[in-house]
Protein backbone atom coordinates (compact mmCIF):
# COMPACT_ATOMS: atom_id res chain seq x y z
CA UNK A 1 0.00 0.00 0.00
CA UNK A 2 1.41 3.42 -0.91
CA UNK A 3 2.49 5.66 1.97
CA UNK A 4 1.15 8.78 0.27
CA UNK A 5 -1.63 8.67 -2.29
CA UNK A 6 -3.12 11.63 -4.13
CA UNK A 7 -6.03 11.40 -6.50
CA UNK A 8 -7.28 14.21 -8.72
CA UNK A 9 -5.75 16.77 -6.38
CA UNK A 10 -6.40 20.39 -7.34
CA UNK A 11 -6.03 23.72 -5.58
CA UNK A 12 -7.31 27.03 -6.81
CA UNK A 13 -6.42 30.27 -4.98
CA UNK A 14 -9.06 32.85 -5.82
CA UNK A 15 -10.55 32.73 -9.30
CA UNK A 16 -7.39 33.14 -11.35
CA UNK A 17 -4.64 31.03 -9.80
CA UNK A 18 -4.84 27.29 -10.38
CA UNK A 19 -1.81 26.25 -8.30
CA UNK A 20 -2.29 22.48 -8.62
CA UNK A 21 -4.28 20.91 -11.41
CA UNK A 22 -5.67 17.37 -11.17
CA UNK A 23 -2.56 15.67 -9.78
CA UNK A 24 -2.56 11.93 -9.09
CA UNK A 25 0.41 10.03 -7.67
CA UNK A 26 1.46 7.35 -5.21
CA UNK A 27 4.62 7.25 -3.07
CA UNK A 28 5.90 3.83 -2.05
CA UNK A 29 7.38 3.05 1.37
CA UNK A 30 11.14 3.27 1.91
CA UNK A 31 11.86 5.40 -1.15
CA UNK A 32 13.23 8.89 -1.64
CA UNK A 33 10.95 10.66 -4.07
CA UNK A 34 11.80 14.03 -5.54
CA UNK A 35 9.06 16.49 -6.48
CA UNK A 36 10.77 18.51 -9.16
CA UNK A 37 9.85 21.59 -11.08
CA UNK A 38 10.54 25.28 -11.43
CA UNK A 39 9.30 27.91 -8.97
CA UNK A 40 5.53 28.17 -9.21
CA UNK A 41 5.13 24.58 -10.38
CA UNK A 42 2.79 23.75 -7.48
CA UNK A 43 5.26 21.67 -5.44
CA UNK A 44 4.85 23.50 -2.13
CA UNK A 45 1.06 23.65 -2.42
CA UNK A 46 0.99 19.91 -3.09
CA UNK A 47 3.13 19.16 -0.02
CA UNK A 48 0.99 21.47 2.12
CA UNK A 49 -2.16 19.72 0.92
CA UNK A 50 -0.67 16.37 1.98
CA UNK A 51 -0.17 17.88 5.46
CA UNK A 52 -3.65 19.43 5.65
CA UNK A 53 -2.26 22.94 5.86
CA UNK A 54 -3.90 23.84 2.55
CA UNK A 55 -7.36 22.47 1.80
CA UNK A 56 -7.74 20.97 -1.71
CA UNK A 57 -10.34 22.54 -3.98
CA UNK A 58 -11.02 19.05 -5.30
CA UNK A 59 -9.54 15.56 -5.09
CA UNK A 60 -8.17 13.81 -2.05
CA UNK A 61 -4.83 12.89 -0.51
CA UNK A 62 -4.01 10.37 2.18
CA UNK A 63 -0.85 9.71 4.13
CA UNK A 64 -0.29 6.41 5.94
CA UNK A 65 -3.80 5.41 4.96
CA UNK A 66 -5.77 8.40 6.22
CA UNK A 67 -6.04 12.17 6.01
CA UNK A 68 -3.24 13.89 7.94
CA UNK A 69 -5.72 15.46 10.33
CA UNK A 70 -7.04 12.00 11.22
CA UNK A 71 -3.62 10.57 12.17
CA UNK A 72 -3.15 9.90 15.86
CA UNK A 73 -0.03 11.68 17.20
CA UNK A 74 0.98 12.78 13.67
CA UNK A 75 4.35 14.24 14.71
CA UNK A 76 5.45 10.71 15.65
CA UNK A 77 4.59 9.42 12.17
CA UNK A 78 5.23 12.30 9.78
CA UNK A 79 7.99 14.89 9.99
CA UNK A 80 7.85 17.99 7.83
CA UNK A 81 10.24 20.75 6.83
CA UNK A 82 8.24 23.40 5.04
CA UNK A 83 9.76 26.74 5.82
CA UNK A 84 12.94 27.59 7.68
CA UNK A 85 11.33 30.83 8.88
CA UNK A 86 8.73 29.04 11.04
CA UNK A 87 10.47 29.93 14.30
CA UNK A 88 10.05 32.88 16.65
CA UNK A 89 13.27 34.90 16.20
CA UNK A 90 13.54 35.65 19.91
CA UNK A 91 13.36 32.01 20.96
CA UNK A 92 16.53 29.92 21.26
CA UNK A 93 16.92 27.05 18.83
CA UNK A 94 16.47 24.56 21.66
CA UNK A 95 13.36 26.28 23.01
CA UNK A 96 11.88 26.51 19.51
CA UNK A 97 12.13 22.71 19.33
CA UNK A 98 10.93 22.27 22.93
CA UNK A 99 7.71 24.14 22.08
CA UNK A 100 7.05 21.76 19.19
CA UNK A 101 8.10 18.75 21.28
CA UNK A 102 5.77 19.75 24.14
CA UNK A 103 2.76 19.80 21.81
CA UNK A 104 3.81 16.47 20.28
CA UNK A 105 4.41 14.82 23.68
CA UNK A 106 8.07 14.29 22.80
CA UNK A 107 10.51 14.44 25.74
CA UNK A 108 13.19 17.14 25.93
CA UNK A 109 15.92 14.48 25.62
CA UNK A 110 14.76 13.89 22.04
CA UNK A 111 15.15 17.63 21.38
CA UNK A 112 18.82 17.35 22.28
CA UNK A 113 19.19 14.23 20.11
CA UNK A 114 17.62 16.01 17.13
CA UNK A 115 19.93 18.99 17.61
CA UNK A 116 22.87 16.60 17.70
CA UNK A 117 21.67 14.89 14.50
CA UNK A 118 21.72 18.18 12.57
CA UNK A 119 24.94 19.31 14.27
CA UNK A 120 23.42 22.32 16.01
CA UNK A 121 24.14 21.41 19.64
CA UNK A 122 26.73 24.16 19.97
CA UNK A 123 24.25 26.84 18.89
CA UNK A 124 21.20 25.46 20.67
CA UNK A 125 21.01 28.24 23.26
CA UNK A 126 21.40 31.09 20.78
CA UNK A 127 18.33 33.02 19.62
CA UNK A 128 17.11 31.91 16.19
CA UNK A 129 17.45 35.47 14.86
CA UNK A 130 21.22 34.99 15.06
CA UNK A 131 21.17 31.84 12.91
CA UNK A 132 22.32 31.80 9.30
CA UNK A 133 19.88 30.56 6.64
CA UNK A 134 21.66 27.21 6.59
CA UNK A 135 21.40 26.89 10.39
CA UNK A 136 17.67 27.70 10.28
CA UNK A 137 17.29 25.04 7.62
CA UNK A 138 19.04 22.51 9.87
CA UNK A 139 16.85 23.57 12.79
CA UNK A 140 13.76 22.99 10.64
CA UNK A 141 15.14 19.58 9.77
CA UNK A 142 15.62 18.84 13.48
CA UNK A 143 11.98 19.85 14.04
CA UNK A 144 10.94 17.36 11.35
CA UNK A 145 12.93 14.61 13.06
CA UNK A 146 11.65 15.25 16.60
CA UNK A 147 9.06 12.49 16.61
CA UNK A 148 11.41 10.00 14.89
CA UNK A 149 8.83 9.77 12.07
CA UNK A 150 8.49 7.06 9.44
CA UNK A 151 7.72 9.63 6.70
CA UNK A 152 9.66 12.82 6.01
CA UNK A 153 8.25 15.59 3.83
CA UNK A 154 10.86 18.20 2.99
CA UNK A 155 10.17 21.31 0.93
CA UNK A 156 13.33 22.71 -0.66
CA UNK A 157 15.58 21.45 2.18
CA UNK A 158 18.76 22.57 0.41
CA UNK A 159 17.74 26.24 0.32
CA UNK A 160 20.49 28.31 1.89
CA UNK A 161 22.91 25.40 2.26
CA UNK A 162 26.49 25.80 1.06
CA UNK A 163 28.10 22.99 -1.02
CA UNK A 164 29.31 21.31 2.18
CA UNK A 165 25.78 21.53 3.59
CA UNK A 166 24.31 20.07 0.41
CA UNK A 167 26.69 17.12 0.62
CA UNK A 168 25.72 16.70 4.27
CA UNK A 169 22.03 16.77 3.31
CA UNK A 170 22.47 14.15 0.59
CA UNK A 171 24.26 11.83 3.01
CA UNK A 172 21.64 12.54 5.64
CA UNK A 173 18.70 11.74 3.34
CA UNK A 174 20.35 8.52 2.15
CA UNK A 175 20.84 7.56 5.81
CA UNK A 176 17.17 8.21 6.55
CA UNK A 177 16.05 6.07 3.59
CA UNK A 178 18.43 3.28 4.57
CA UNK A 179 16.66 3.17 7.94
CA UNK A 180 13.43 2.45 6.10
CA UNK A 181 11.94 5.92 6.14
CA UNK A 182 9.97 7.27 3.22
CA UNK A 183 11.21 10.67 2.09
CA UNK A 184 9.36 13.09 -0.17
CA UNK A 185 11.60 16.00 -1.07
CA UNK A 186 10.86 18.94 -3.35
CA UNK A 187 13.39 21.02 -5.20
CA UNK A 188 13.63 23.43 -8.08
CA UNK A 189 17.37 22.70 -8.49
CA UNK A 190 17.25 19.46 -10.46
CA UNK A 191 20.96 18.65 -10.31
CA UNK A 192 20.82 18.93 -6.51
CA UNK A 193 18.45 15.98 -6.08
CA UNK A 194 19.58 13.93 -9.06
CA UNK A 195 22.14 12.11 -6.92
CA UNK A 196 19.74 11.55 -4.04
CA UNK A 197 16.32 10.41 -5.19
CA UNK A 198 14.98 7.03 -6.36
CA UNK A 199 11.73 8.21 -7.90
CA UNK A 200 10.64 11.55 -9.26
CA UNK A 201 7.47 13.52 -9.84
CA UNK A 202 7.97 16.26 -12.40
CA UNK A 203 5.60 19.22 -12.07
CA UNK A 204 5.18 22.34 -14.12
CA UNK A 205 2.45 24.99 -13.96
CA UNK A 206 0.48 22.95 -11.46
CA UNK A 207 0.39 19.78 -13.52
CA UNK A 208 2.18 16.49 -12.96
CA UNK A 209 4.11 15.84 -16.17
CA UNK A 210 5.86 12.57 -15.35
CA UNK A 211 6.47 10.18 -12.48
CA UNK A 212 8.45 7.04 -11.89
CA UNK A 213 11.92 5.72 -11.04
CA UNK A 214 14.62 8.16 -12.14
CA UNK A 215 16.60 5.47 -14.02
CA UNK A 216 13.60 4.37 -16.05
CA UNK A 217 12.59 7.92 -16.95
CA UNK A 218 16.07 9.00 -17.98
CA UNK A 219 16.67 5.73 -19.88
CA UNK A 220 13.48 6.29 -21.85
CA UNK A 221 14.46 9.86 -22.68
CA UNK A 222 16.21 10.82 -25.88
CA UNK A 223 20.00 10.98 -25.59
CA UNK A 224 21.65 14.36 -26.09
CA UNK A 225 24.35 14.82 -28.73
CA UNK A 226 27.05 17.28 -27.69
CA UNK A 227 28.90 18.74 -30.64
CA UNK A 228 31.60 21.40 -30.79
CA UNK A 229 32.53 23.19 -33.98
CA UNK A 230 34.41 26.39 -34.84
CA UNK A 231 31.47 26.99 -37.24
CA UNK A 232 28.81 26.44 -34.58
CA UNK A 233 26.37 28.99 -36.03
CA UNK A 234 26.32 27.35 -39.46
CA UNK A 235 26.04 23.89 -37.89
CA UNK A 236 23.16 25.04 -35.69
CA UNK A 237 21.30 26.37 -38.73
CA UNK A 238 21.91 23.18 -40.69
CA UNK A 239 20.77 20.91 -37.84
CA UNK A 240 17.68 23.03 -37.18
CA UNK A 241 16.83 22.88 -40.87
CA UNK A 242 17.01 19.08 -40.69
CA UNK A 243 14.42 19.06 -37.88
CA UNK A 244 16.69 18.63 -34.83
CA UNK A 245 16.13 20.51 -31.56
CA UNK A 246 19.31 22.50 -30.91
CA UNK A 247 20.39 24.43 -27.81
CA UNK A 248 23.51 26.62 -27.84
CA UNK A 249 25.85 26.04 -24.86
CA UNK A 250 28.73 28.53 -25.26
CA UNK A 251 30.82 27.09 -28.12
CA UNK A 252 29.01 23.74 -28.08
CA UNK A 253 25.60 22.60 -29.24
CA UNK A 254 23.20 20.22 -27.44
CA UNK A 255 21.22 18.40 -30.10
CA UNK A 256 18.12 16.29 -29.53
CA UNK A 257 16.52 14.13 -32.21
CA UNK A 258 19.23 12.79 -34.53
CA UNK A 259 21.91 10.26 -33.58
CA UNK A 260 25.60 11.21 -33.38
CA UNK A 261 26.14 9.62 -36.83
CA UNK A 262 23.34 11.70 -38.33
CA UNK A 263 24.80 14.91 -36.81
CA UNK A 264 28.20 13.94 -38.30
CA UNK A 265 26.56 13.38 -41.71
CA UNK A 266 24.92 16.82 -41.63
CA UNK A 267 28.28 18.43 -40.79
CA UNK A 268 30.03 16.50 -43.59
CA UNK A 269 27.36 17.44 -46.14
CA UNK A 270 27.69 21.14 -45.19
CA UNK A 271 31.50 20.93 -45.15
CA UNK A 272 31.74 21.94 -41.50
CA UNK A 273 34.60 21.05 -39.16
CA UNK A 274 33.81 19.20 -35.91
CA UNK A 275 36.08 19.27 -32.84
CA UNK A 276 33.93 17.07 -30.63
CA UNK A 277 30.97 14.75 -31.11
CA UNK A 278 29.60 12.60 -28.33
CA UNK A 279 26.39 10.99 -27.08
CA UNK A 280 25.33 11.73 -23.50
CA UNK A 281 22.66 10.06 -21.41
CA UNK A 282 20.23 12.83 -20.54
CA UNK A 283 20.48 14.46 -17.11
CA UNK A 284 17.45 15.14 -15.02
CA UNK A 285 17.52 18.67 -16.33
CA UNK A 286 17.52 17.40 -19.93
CA UNK A 287 14.66 15.08 -19.07
CA UNK A 288 12.69 17.92 -17.52
CA UNK A 289 13.27 20.16 -20.52
CA UNK A 290 12.19 17.39 -22.87
CA UNK A 291 9.03 16.61 -20.94
CA UNK A 292 8.11 20.23 -20.32
CA UNK A 293 8.87 21.06 -23.97
CA UNK A 294 6.79 18.15 -25.24
CA UNK A 295 3.85 19.19 -23.10
CA UNK A 296 4.21 22.80 -24.18
CA UNK A 297 4.25 21.73 -27.85
CA UNK A 298 1.25 19.51 -27.31
Amino acid sequence: MPVIEAEGLSKRFGKKVLAVDDVTFAIEAGTITGVLGPNGAGKTTTLRMILDLVRPTSGRVTILGSRYRDLRAPAGRVGALLDSSGFHPGRSGRNALRVIAAGARVPDERVDEALELVELTGSAKRAVKGYSTGMKQRLALAAALLGDPEVLILDEPANGLDPEGMLWLRTFLRGQASEGRTVLVSSHVLAEVEQTVDDILIMSKGRLLAQGPIDRLTAGAQPVIRVRSPQAEKLEAALSASGAAVNRLNDALAVRGPTAAEVGDVAHTEGLVLHELLTEQPSLEDLFLQIAGTRRDA
Partner: peptide, 9 residues
Protein backbone atom coordinates in the same frame (compact mmCIF):
# COMPACT_ATOMS: atom_id res chain seq x y z
CA UNK B 1 6.69 34.27 12.44
CA UNK B 2 5.10 31.24 10.78
CA UNK B 3 4.99 29.21 14.00
CA UNK B 4 1.31 28.47 13.31
CA UNK B 5 2.56 25.91 10.75
CA UNK B 6 4.18 23.81 13.48
CA UNK B 7 1.19 24.31 15.79
CA UNK B 8 -1.11 22.81 13.16
CA UNK B 9 1.34 20.09 12.11
Amino acid sequence: HGTITYSYL
